[in-house]
Measured scan of single mutants.
Amino acid sequence: SEFQINEQVLASWSDSRFYPAKVTAVNKDGTYTVKFYDGVVQTVKHIHVKA
């Protein structure tokens, strides 16, 4: 599913667990740039983002 900029989502971290994050960019290659609550910004594949 498509997510929008500033949408609150759950994004997987390197430990494969999902954490609350905010979408900061929707990228043309189908990835999302997300910002976790601790301030870390990461680009993740769409399969690693869920509502």
Score class of each variant (00 low, 15 high):
Trp13Ser: 11
Ala21Tyr: 04
Pro20Trp: 05
Lys45Arg: 10
Ala11His: 03
Arg17Glu: 15
Ile47Pro: 09
Lys22Asn: 07
Val9Arg: 00
Lys45Ile: 10
Asn6Trp: 09
Ile5Glu: 06
Tyr37Gly: 08
Asp38Pro: 03
Ile47Trp: 11
Phe36Thr: 03
Ser1Cys: 14
Lys45Gly: 09
Tyr32Leu: 09
Lys22Glu: 10
Glu2Arg: 14
Thr24Ser: 05
Val23His: 00
Phe36Gln: 01
Ser16Lys: 11
Phe3Ile: 05
Lys22Val: 15
Glu2His: 14
Tyr32Trp: 05
Val40Glu: 10
Trp13Leu: 12
Ala21Ile: 03
Glu7Gly: 06
Lys35Pro: 00
Glu7Tyr: 03
Tyr32Thr: 01
Lys50Ile: 14
Ala25Cys: 07
Gln42Leu: 12
Ser14Gln: 13
Gly39Asn: 07
Phe36Met: 05
His46Trp: 12
Gln4Cys: 11
Val40Gln: 14
Ser12Ile: 15
Lys28Asp: 13
Asp38Tyr: 07
Thr43Asn: 11
Thr24Asn: 05
Arg17Tyr: 11
Lys35Trp: 08
Thr43Tyr: 04
Asn6Gln: 07
Thr24Asp: 03
His46Gln: 09
Val26Gln: 06
Lys22Met: 14
Ser12Gly: 10
Asn6Gly: 15
Trp13Val: 12
Asn27Val: 00
Pro20Glu: 06
Asp38Arg: 03
Glu7Pro: 01
His48Met: 11
Gly30Tyr: 05
Val44Trp: 03
Val49Glu: 03
Thr33Val: 12
Leu10His: 05
Lys22Tyr: 12
Ser16Met: 11
Lys35Arg: 11
Val41Gln: 07
Ile5Pro: 05
Ser1Tyr: 12
Lys45Trp: 07
Ser1Phe: 13
Lys45Val: 08
Asn6Ile: 05
Ala51Arg: 11
Lys45Ser: 14
Asp38Phe: 15
Asn6Cys: 13
Phe18Asp: 02
Tyr32Val: 09
Ser16Pro: 05
Val9Phe: 03
Asp29Met: 03
Val9Trp: 04
Val49Pro: 06
Asp29Thr: 00
Ala21Cys: 07
Tyr37Asp: 11
Tyr19Leu: 12
Val41Glu: 13
Ile5Leu: 10
Pro20Ala: 07
Trp13Asp: 08
Gly39Gln: 03
Leu10Asp: 04
His46Pro: 14
Asp29Ser: 01
Ile5Arg: 04
Gly30Ala: 01
Glu7Ser: 08
Ala25Asp: 05
Thr43Leu: 08
Val49Thr: 06
Pro20Gly: 04
Leu10Gly: 01
Ile47Tyr: 09
Ile47Thr: 15
Gly30Cys: 06
Val26Arg: 04
Gln42Cys: 15
His48Phe: 12
Thr33Arg: 05
Ser16Asp: 13
Lys28Ile: 11
Lys35His: 09
Thr31Arg: 02
Asp38Ser: 12
Asn27Trp: 06
Asn6Ser: 05
Lys22Phe: 13
Asp38Cys: 15
Asp15His: 08
Thr31Val: 01
Thr31Asp: 02
Glu7Val: 08
Phe36Ile: 02
Lys22His: 11
Val26Thr: 02
Lys28Tyr: 08
Phe3Glu: 03
His46Glu: 12
Glu7Ala: 09
Glu2Lys: 14
Asn6Leu: 06
Lys22Leu: 15
Val23Arg: 00
Tyr19Gly: 04
Leu10Pro: 01
Thr43Gln: 08
Arg17Ile: 14
Tyr37Pro: 07
His46Gly: 14
Thr33Cys: 04
Pro20Asp: 06
His48Lys: 10
Pro20Asn: 06
Val40Met: 13
Gln42Glu: 06
Phe3Asp: 00
Tyr37Ile: 10
Gln42Thr: 10
Gly30Arg: 04
Asp15Pro: 06
Lys50Arg: 11
Val41Tyr: 10
Thr31Cys: 04
Tyr32His: 01
Ile5Lys: 04
Ala21Ser: 01
Tyr37Trp: 14
Ile5Asn: 04
Thr31His: 01
His48Ala: 09
Tyr32Ser: 00
Leu10Val: 06
Val23Pro: 00
Thr24Pro: 00
Tyr32Met: 04
Tyr37Lys: 07
Tyr32Cys: 04
His46Ser: 15
Asp38Lys: 06
Ile47Met: 09
Asp38Leu: 07
Asn27Glu: 05
Gln42Asn: 06
Thr31Leu: 02
Gly30Met: 06
Pro20Arg: 06
Pro20His: 06
Val44Phe: 04
Phe18Arg: 01
Val23Phe: 01
Asp15Trp: 03
Lys50Thr: 09
Gly39Arg: 04
Ser14Val: 10
Thr31Phe: 04
Trp13Arg: 15
Gly39Phe: 04
Gly39Lys: 04
Lys28Gly: 13
Ala51Cys: 10
Lys50Gln: 11
Phe3Ser: 02
Phe36Pro: 02
Ala21His: 03
Val44Glu: 01
Val49Ala: 06
Gln8Leu: 15
Glu7Gln: 15
Ala11Gln: 02
Val23Gly: 01
Gln4Glu: 08
Asp29Tyr: 01
Gln4Phe: 07
Lys22Gly: 03
Gln42Ser: 11
Leu10Glu: 06
Ala25Trp: 06
Ala51Asn: 09
Ser1Asp: 10
Val34Asn: 00
Gly39Val: 04
Pro20Thr: 06
Gln42Asp: 06
Asn27Arg: 02
Lys22Trp: 13
Thr43Asp: 11
Ala25Asn: 09
Lys35Ser: 08
Val34Arg: 00
Val40Phe: 12
Tyr19Phe: 11
His48Val: 07
Gln4Tyr: 09
Val9His: 04
Gln8Lys: 10
Val26Cys: 09
Lys28Phe: 10
Val40Ser: 15
Val40Pro: 08
Ala51Asp: 09
Ile5Cys: 07
Thr33Lys: 06
Phe3Pro: 04
Val49Ile: 15
Thr43Phe: 07
Val9Ala: 02
Val23Trp: 00
Ile47Lys: 09
Val23Leu: 07
Phe3Tyr: 09
Asp38Trp: 15
Thr24Ile: 15
Val26Gly: 01
Ser14Trp: 10
Val23Glu: 01
Val26Trp: 05
His48Asp: 13
Val34His: 00
Asp15Arg: 00
Pro20Ile: 03
Lys45Pro: 11
Ala25His: 10
Glu7Cys: 06
Ser14Ile: 12
Ala11Asn: 02
Gln8Thr: 14
Tyr37Gln: 11
Gln8Val: 12
Arg17His: 14
Ala11Lys: 01
His46Arg: 15
Val44Asn: 01
Val23Tyr: 00
Asp15Gly: 15
Val9Asn: 05
Ala11Gly: 02
Ile47Cys: 14
Thr33Ala: 01
Lys50Gly: 06
Ala51Gly: 10
Asn27Ile: 02
Thr24Phe: 06
Ile5Met: 09
Ser12Phe: 15
Thr24Ala: 04
Ser14Ala: 13
Thr31Tyr: 05
Pro20Ser: 03
Tyr19Asn: 03
Lys22Cys: 10
Thr33Asp: 11
Ser16Ile: 07
Val23Ile: 15
Glu7Met: 10
Lys45Asn: 11
Lys35Phe: 07
Val40Tyr: 09
Ser1Glu: 10
Gly30Trp: 05
Val41Pro: 04
Val9Thr: 02
Phe3His: 05
Tyr32Lys: 00
Gly39Met: 04
Val41Leu: 08
Ala21Trp: 03
Phe36Tyr: 05
Gln8Trp: 15
Ser14Met: 14
His48Ser: 06
Asn6Met: 07
Gly39Asp: 04
Tyr37Leu: 08
Gly30Leu: 04
Ser16Cys: 14
Phe36Glu: 00
Val41Thr: 12
Val40Asn: 13
Gln42Phe: 11
Glu2Thr: 13
Lys50Val: 11
Thr24Leu: 15
Val41Ser: 10
